[in-house]
Amino acid sequence: MSEQDAPLEREDGNRELWATIFGPGGHPVLSKQHWLHRKLPRDPRCRLCLVPFSGLGGWIMGKRGKAPSSRNPHYCAACDGFLETFPGGAEVEMSVLFVDVRGSVGAAETMPPADVSARINGFLERGTALITAHDGFIMAFYGDCIVAVFPPGFCGEGHAQKAIAAAKALCRIEGDDPVPLGVGVHTGPVYIGTVQAARGLFRDVSIFGHAVNICARLAANAPPHSAVISADCFIAAGQQVPEEAENYTLKGASEGVRAAVVTAAPHGRLA
Score class of each variant (00 low, 15 high):
141 F>M: 05
73 P>R: 12
140 A>C: 00
20 T>G: 04
58 G>H: 08
148 A>R: 01
62 G>P: 09
246 E>Q: 14
125 E>I: 12
135 D>L: 15
66 K>Q: 14
245 A>Y: 02
142 Y>Q: 12
136 G>E: 09
208 F>D: 03
55 G>V: 12
256 G>C: 00
21 I>S: 02
13 G>Q: 05
6 A>Q: 14
185 V>E: 10
245 A>M: 01
143 G>L: 08
226 S>V: 09
100 D>H: 04
220 A>D: 14
173 I>P: 02
138 I>E: 10
237 A>F: 05
248 Y>R: 06
180 P>G: 05
194 T>I: 03
182 G>Y: 13
233 C>T: 15
42 R>D: 13
107 A>C: 08
77 A>K: 12
26 G>S: 01
270 L>R: 11
109 E>Y: 07
189 P>E: 09
167 A>N: 12
154 F>C: 07
231 A>Y: 03
21 I>F: 04
43 D>R: 14
125 E>Y: 10
96 V>R: 01
210 H>W: 06
184 G>T: 10
251 K>F: 07
192 I>T: 10
179 V>H: 02
187 T>M: 04
263 T>W: 04
247 N>E: 13
188 G>M: 12
123 F>D: 04
124 L>G: 11
73 P>I: 09
66 K>S: 13
235 I>L: 11
142 Y>S: 14
43 D>F: 11
16 E>D: 14
70 S>A: 15
245 A>F: 02
112 P>C: 09
33 Q>D: 03
77 A>D: 14
269 R>V: 12
38 R>K: 08
57 G>H: 05
38 R>P: 00
103 G>F: 11
124 L>M: 11
72 N>I: 01
126 R>W: 00
82 F>Q: 03
183 V>I: 15
256 G>F: 00
187 T>A: 13
152 P>L: 09
148 A>C: 08
153 G>P: 06
31 S>P: 00
222 A>M: 05
126 R>P: 00
29 V>I: 14
149 V>A: 12
27 H>M: 05
166 A>L: 12
109 E>H: 05
153 G>M: 11
271 A>S: 12
250 L>I: 09
221 N>E: 15
25 G>D: 06
225 H>V: 03
101 V>S: 06
210 H>I: 04
234 F>C: 07
244 E>R: 15
147 V>G: 07
127 G>F: 05
44 P>A: 00
112 P>N: 10
32 K>V: 05
202 F>Y: 15
42 R>N: 09
205 V>D: 01
156 G>A: 08
117 S>W: 12
174 E>W: 04
211 A>I: 11
192 I>Y: 00
252 G>S: 09
218 L>S: 07
126 R>S: 08
220 A>Y: 03
77 A>Q: 14
89 G>P: 06
151 P>I: 12
163 A>L: 06
6 A>N: 13
268 G>Q: 11
197 A>P: 01
147 V>Y: 09
84 E>F: 06
91 E>F: 00
266 P>N: 13
262 V>Q: 06
98 F>Y: 14
168 K>Q: 15
222 A>I: 05
